[in-house]
Structure formats: structure tokens, C-alpha cells
Nucleic acid binder design. Sequence first.
DNA 1: GCTTGATCCTCACGCGACGTGAGGCGGCAC
DNA 2: GTGCCGCCTCACGTCGCGTGAGGATCAAGC
Lengths: 235, 235
Amino acid sequence: MKVGELARATGLTVRTLHHWEERGLVVPSARTHSGHRVYDDGDVRRVYQVVALRELGLPLDAIGSLLTTGSFATVLAAHLEQVDARLAALHTLRGTLAGVVDRLRGAPDPAPSDVLRMIDEVSRVNDTFAQYFTPEQIAALQARRDEAEAAAAQWPDLIAAVRAEMAAGTDPGDPRVQSLASRWAELLATFHRGDEALRERLYRMRSDNPGEVVAAGGPDQAMIDYIAAAADAGR
Amino acid sequence: MKVGELARATGLTVRTLHHWEERGLVVPSARTHSGHRVYDDGDVRRVYQVVALRELGLPLDAIGSLLTTGSFATVLAAHLEQVDARLAALHTLRGTLAGVVDRLRGAPDPAPSDVLRMIDEVSRVNDTFAQYFTPEQIAALQARRDEAEAAAAQWPDLIAAVRAEMAAGTDPGDPRVQSLASRWAELLATFHRGDEALRERLYRMRSDNPGEVVAAGGPDQAMIDYIAAAADAGR
DNA sequence: GCTTGATCCTCACGCGACGTGAGGCGGCAC
DNA sequence: GTGCCGCCTCACGTCGCGTGAGGATCAAGC
């Protein structure tokens, strides 16, 4: 087999096969008199092994030593840990980025300095979030994020409406406030979905970091009390 | 401010600041007569902006164009999509890798060709899995994988026990079979946790690929029917 | 004024896994 | 002979810096 054939057969490029030879991974066992590479059956099998290991995300030199030492278990386990670490990092990055993109929807064409402040803020919120929720809980929330985002988008309106009633001095027992309180409870429920642990962590996070929550457009303590009074009045 | 001071203040290295200047990201607005860089307030703010955007994982040239054009919303949204793609890819990689590592525990010091076959196999199973579950669902499962692995370890025993009762011709209404059926339901519940969509996908995957499930040590259709009959009898 | 240690400057190579030419030879059909 | 395709070997570019090498400058003590 010559390089071109092998390349077509494996879906690799000729350059890649050249490169693997340079790195000593797959050295064709023969050459024609004019210097053309000739791969035999063993070489081809070797190429497929390198392909498989490369798909696991291993660096080429690790693949080389693996194919000579054969210590797959330890090397792959170590690699798995590293992948997990990258996954975790990428995951929190995605959280921060999603937060920033979300806020940008509300503020078109902000100044660079505003964006800077926004990023810092979101990172902090994200870190705070990570303190109160386990990675499993965050992953579970992430899993239904479309739904969660749709719900989250309704908070600003609701909060504004509640603020208006508070400013107007409306009694918590008033039907309008009652309806707001039940919308409030529904939105909360789309977040915790009946998971008590989740609900409690959210509550603790809010009461431990009132300043950040307000800065992020969340409700303040007075508003929470007002809604709680409305819920009590409704019973 | 000179480079060294700025580097200490920001936690960057002097080389990084030099590099950013080469790329045109942050060019100090002045130099001393002897050529030393002098950063003024604006330059320092600019450095912090680059730092913030870099933490979002943006490439340097994207940061440069962002800081001149100011089109944050579109660029960051595009970047988010790309991060999502990388996350998804890394995620299926982690699944495959975990599968291989898991199998390697059972087979110490396998030949490279065996590992190759193993990788292909696990990738196929992983792909099958990916066809039936959304990335979000896989993420949610992944999040509680320790728990899930512990539960999965109980399946072989349970399946063997059920097979024994079937072979003995025990009636599905028998208390022993009833108890097996309830253990079965519990194990299933640790998987889907009341999520109907998850349960249904699992069911579809099993009925679409009966051969692979049996080959992987899963239950066959007769066993499913038997357990279903037991569950019916228990009502 | 001289030495000394810290800080500054400008090249320039290295990393990882190839992509992408450039320039030239070999092989096969017409 | 002549075209065309495939093969060969350099060798530079990618991305974000790390890491010297070799030399100038600065602030301070003697």
C-alpha cells in the first residue's frame, strides 16, 4: 500500500501519515527503489491503533509510549482525570459566558468598561453559585436550562410589578398581589421542581448574599417579606 | 506605571504584556527616553478589559476586534455556541474514555489490538446512547454517575435471580418474584428518578436494540414480560 | 564616581499536530 | 515524447505565550 491509498482508506491526509512517521509512530516497513513509502498489513493495523487512541484525545507521544509499553490502564485513567478537569473548567466557563450573553440582551452596544464590570459581576455570581450548589445540582439545572432561561426571563417583569404594588402601598391581601404571589411561587417551582435541598440552598444563597442578589436585579428583603405576607394572607 | 509594576498588579507576566503589545491589543501610550514602556490609566483599564475577555476563553484577535468594534452581543453569543459544541464533544469523549477505563479494569495488560477493538466497541455503544438521549439528559446522568454506577452494579445479581425464577417456572404472582419486581422498579427509579422522558427513552433504546442489550448483559424481552406480569399481579 | 542588583530592552526558538504550499522526481497512459 | 497524477523533501504558519540570551538602564549604597 502506498501513502495515498492508505490515506484514502483511513480518512487521514498524506501529511498526517508523514507526520506520524516523523514522530516515530508509524514507520512504513519498506520503501520502493525510488523512495516511495510502502505500508504492509502490520503498518496498516498500527495506523488504525493510532487513530483509535487519538480519538480518545491522547497526545501523539503518549500514544507512542502506550503502543510500546502497553500500560493502558494507568495512562488512560490519568487521561480521564485530566478530561474531567477540562470538562469542569469548561462547564463553569459556559456558565459565566451564558450569564454575560444573557445580560447583553438587555443592554445593546454597551461600552467596553461596562462589559468588563458585567463579566466580573457574572463571574462572582457564578462562583457564589458554585459555593452553594453541588456540581451535580448545577449539572441538573444545566440540563433543563432552556426551560430555566425561559422562566428566568419572567422575573424582571414580575419583580417590577411587585415593586409597583409596594410603592403604591397595596395591601398584601389584595387580589392583585395574591396573583403576583402565586406567579412568584410558580417561577420558584420551575427552579427547584419540588427538590427541597435545591430550594433551601437557593434560600441560603440569597440570604447570605443580599447585596449581590440585588445588584443582579433580584429581590431585596423587603420584597421577600411582602410576598411572604401575601402568601400568608392567601391561606 | 512600568511593565514590572503593572505585571505584579495584574498577576500577568511581563512577557504577556509584551505579547499583547505585539498583537496590538494594549500598546502603552508612552515610552521613556531610554525606551522603557509607560502605561497610563487608560492603558491599565485596557489591560483589565483584555484580562476579563480572555477569561471568557476568547482568542486574542477576537478580543482586539471586540474592543474596537464593540459588537459584544453577536461575538459572545457565537463564542457561547462554540463552547457548547466543545462541551458536547468533550462530554461524549469522557463517556467513551470512562467506558474503556472501566473495561480495562476487568482485563489487565491487554494487547494493543484488543484495546483497539474495545475502543471501537465502547464508541459504538456510546453513539447508540447519544442517539436516544439528549446531551442535557446525558449531562444529568453524568452528574450522579457514582450513584448510577453503584446501582448498575446490582443489575447482574438481580437479572441472575430473575432468570433463576423463570427457569424454575415460578408464578409471577409468587411473593419471591414480587420482591424481585420491586427491586427491579427501584433500580429503574435510581436511573430515571421519576423523569418520564428519561424512562421512555431508555425503554425505546432497549426495544430498538435488543441484541446489543442482551450482549451487554441486559434483560431480554421474555424477562421484561415476566417482570411486567409480576408488577401487574402485585397491583 | 563606581559598583551592584533589579529591572528593562529586543530578538528568537519551542511547544502540538498538522495545513499548506514550493520545487522537483517517478509512473503510467496516450 | 508528453501530459497528468502521485510521490518526495524541505520549511514556514498556526496560538499564546515560556524561556532564555545578550545587553542597556535605573536606583541606591559605598
